[in-house]
Amino acid sequence: MKSPTEEEFEESIKELSEYKNRLEKEVITISQKLKMPQTKIKSIINSHQELNQIEIILSKLYKQKENATSKLIS
């Protein structure tokens, strides 16, 4: 199995980031409709399991992309 290209990393990161942003907006919108305080909304976002998982995956993708790019340069 071949390694992903830099473009594939970029596309994956872009799509996952967009999904994360949409999910955060949904949580904020619903919370605001329920008239929740801003501190509670931030707490919900920070403890949201799926958002946290996406953040971990994005971090791993950035590291993999960085490693793949540095291997190409060496």
Results as ranks from 00 to 15, higher is better:
residue 38 Q to V: 12
residue 36 M to E: 14
residue 21 N to P: 02
residue 61 L to S: 02
residue 72 L to Q: 11
residue 38 Q to G: 13
residue 33 K to P: 09
residue 44 I to P: 00
residue 35 K to N: 09
residue 1 M to I: 06
residue 15 E to K: 09
residue 19 Y to N: 13
residue 9 F to E: 06
residue 42 K to I: 06
residue 20 K to V: 04
residue 64 Q to F: 10
residue 54 I to C: 06
residue 15 E to F: 02
residue 40 K to N: 12
residue 63 K to P: 00
residue 64 Q to H: 10
residue 37 P to H: 01
residue 50 E to W: 01
residue 9 F to Q: 02
residue 13 I to E: 02
residue 40 K to P: 05
residue 68 A to E: 12
residue 30 I to A: 14
residue 5 T to P: 07
residue 41 I to P: 01
residue 43 S to V: 03
residue 29 T to D: 12
residue 27 V to W: 03
residue 15 E to R: 07
residue 43 S to N: 03
residue 63 K to E: 01
residue 23 L to D: 02
residue 57 I to D: 02
residue 33 K to Q: 13
residue 2 K to Q: 11
residue 57 I to V: 10
residue 22 R to S: 07
residue 48 H to E: 13
residue 6 E to T: 13
residue 65 K to P: 00
residue 50 E to C: 02
residue 30 I to Q: 08
residue 27 V to E: 10
residue 61 L to Q: 07
residue 46 N to Y: 05
residue 52 N to E: 04
residue 66 E to R: 09
residue 31 S to V: 06
residue 53 Q to W: 10
residue 26 E to Q: 05
residue 31 S to M: 12
residue 29 T to H: 08
residue 46 N to G: 08
residue 25 K to E: 11
residue 18 E to F: 03
residue 49 Q to I: 15
residue 68 A to Y: 07
residue 53 Q to E: 09
residue 4 P to G: 00
residue 72 L to K: 15
residue 62 Y to L: 08
residue 48 H to S: 02
residue 74 S to I: 12
residue 70 S to Y: 14
residue 53 Q to A: 10
residue 51 L to M: 09
residue 27 V to A: 06
residue 17 S to Q: 14
residue 49 Q to T: 15
residue 13 I to P: 00
residue 50 E to R: 05
residue 2 K to G: 07
residue 22 R to Q: 13
residue 3 S to H: 05
residue 66 E to M: 06
residue 59 S to M: 13
residue 53 Q to M: 12
residue 31 S to Y: 08
residue 34 L to Q: 14
residue 29 T to I: 09
residue 4 P to L: 07
residue 14 K to Y: 07
residue 32 Q to E: 14
residue 2 K to V: 04
residue 28 I to D: 12
residue 17 S to V: 06
residue 3 S to W: 04
residue 51 L to G: 03
residue 53 Q to V: 05
residue 12 S to V: 01
residue 39 T to W: 10
residue 60 K to R: 14
residue 44 I to R: 02
residue 33 K to D: 15
residue 23 L to F: 08
residue 14 K to Q: 11
residue 61 L to P: 00
residue 39 T to C: 07
residue 41 I to A: 02
residue 23 L to T: 02
residue 13 I to G: 00
residue 50 E to G: 04
residue 51 L to A: 06
residue 35 K to T: 09
residue 5 T to Q: 09
residue 54 I to Q: 04
residue 45 I to V: 13
residue 30 I to T: 10
